[in-house]
C-alpha cells in the first residue's frame, strides 16, 4: 500500500531528476551529446541520399541507347561551348587581375569551390536549413558562403564530420549586405519565410529613397561584397517593388528568390583560398 503513491509520483521525480541533471550538466557535455546524436543519425541521411542518387542513376540507365547517345552529343556540344566561354573567362580574369595588381588591389578570385550534394531539406516555418554531404573532413568551414547556379543559397551554420548544415537565404535569421545591380550603395537583405505553395522570398531594407523599382522595371539584388562572407556580385533575387520603410527614411520591399532553392540537389561551398 505504501508503495502505490511512490509509484504514482515516480514519473514526477524522474522528470525533476532530468531537469536537475540537464541544468547541472556543463554546456560542453550538452554540446558533445548534441554532436554525438547528430553524428549518429548522419549516416542514415547520407545513406538515404545516396540511395536517391542510385535511384536516379538506375532510372537514367533505363533510357534507350539512342536517347543516351543524343544526350551525349548534346553534352559534348555544351562542353565545347563552355570550354570556349571558360577560355574567354580565363583571359578576362587574367586581364582583370593584372589591372587590379596595377592599382595595388587584391585579386578578386579568392575562393575555391567545394561541390556538395544536399541530403536533407528542412524548410519549415520555424527554420530554413539544408544539410549537405560534406563537412569537416572536406574542409568545410563555419560561415562559408554557399551558392548554386541561381545565386546565394546561404551560409554554413554548423559543420560535422561528414555533413554540414546550411542556413538558407530564406531563413529569418539570415541577413547579408546586398546592393542593387547598378547601384553601389549597400542595402540590407533579410530572409523571410516562404508561404505554402509559394515562391521563396526575402526582404530588402534600407534602400535609399531615390532607388526606383516598379513591377515593369524590376531590379536585381546582388551581394555587395562589403561584408566578410559573400564575394561581390552573386545574385540574390529580383525586387519588383519598393515602398517607404517603417522608419520613413528608406525604402523596403520584397525580394523574389530563385524557385530552385526549394528543391536544391547540389550546392557549392566557397572556401577562402588562403585557408
Amino acid at each position: 500500500m505504501a508503495k502505490r503513491p511512490l509509484n504514482r509520483y515516480r514519473p514526477f521525480l524522474l522528470l525533476g531528476l532530468f531537469i536537475f541533471i540537464w541544468k547541472v550538466v556543463p554546456k560542453s557535455v550538452q554540446l558533445t551529446l548534441h554532436k554525438s546524436f547528430y553524428e549518429f543519425q548522419a549516416p542514415l541521411w547520407i545513406g538515404s541520399s545516396k540511395i536517391e542518387d542510385l535511384h536516379s542513376y538506375w532510372s537514367t540507365r533505363t533510357n534507350s541507347e539512342n536517347k543516351l547517345i543524343e544526350a551525349g552529343i548534346q553534352l559534348s556540344r555544351n562542353n565545347h561551348e563552355l570550354r570556349i566561354q571558360l577560355d574567354q573567362v580565363k583571359l578576362q580574369q587574367e586581364e582583370l587581375n593584372s589591372l587590379r595588381s596595377l592599382h595595388n588591389l587584391s585579386p578578386i578570385n579568392n575562393y575555391t569551390y567545394e561541390t556538395a550534394r544536399v541530403c536533407k531539406r528542412d524548410l519549415t516555418s520555424w527554420w530554413q536549413e539544408i544539410t549537405i554531404r560534406k563537412g569537416d573532413n572536406h574542409g568545410i568551414l563555419k560561415n562559408s558562403p554557399v551558392i548554386f547556379a541561381g545565386g546565394v543559397v546561404g551560409k554554413v551554420k554548423e559543420t560535422y564530420e561528414t555533413t554540414s548544415t546550411v542556413l538558407l537565404i530564406t531563413s529569418r535569421h539570415f541577413r547579408m549586405a546586398a546592393r542593387f545591380e547598378n547601384d553601389p550603395r549597400p542595402v540590407t537583405y533579410i530572409g523571410s519565410i516562404n508561404s505554402s505553395f509559394g515562391n521563396p522570398k526575402g526582404i530588402v531594407r534600407d534602400a535609399p529613397s531615390d532607388v526606383i523599382v516598379t513591377q515593369e522595371k524590376s531590379q536585381k539584388l546582388v551581394s555587395s561584397g562589403l561584408g566578410s562572407i559573400f564575394p561581390e556580385g552573386i545574385n540574390i533575387g529580383t525586387v519588383h517593388y519598393l515602398e517607404p520603410g517603417t522608419n520613413g527614411l528608406f525604402k523596403a520591399g520584397k525580394v523574389l528568390l530563385d524557385k530552385r532553392l526549394l528543391y536544391l540537389k547540389e550546392v557549392s561551398v566557397l572556401l577562402p583560398k588562403n585557408k
Binding site: 542514415l44 541521411w45 538515404s48 536533407k120 531539406r121 528542412d122 524548410l123 519549415t124 516555418s125 516562404n194 508561404s195 505554402s196 505553395f197 509559394g198 521563396p200 526549394l262 528543391y263
Partner: peptide, 16 residues
C-alpha cells in the same frame, strides 16, 4: 527517416 524523405519531397510546395 521516412518523414524526412517525405519532407524533402514536400519542400517544393513549401509544406512541412
Amino acid at each position: 527517416l521516412f518523414v524526412m524523405e517525405l519532407n524533402n519531397s514536400l519542400t517544393t510546395l513549401s509544406i512541412t
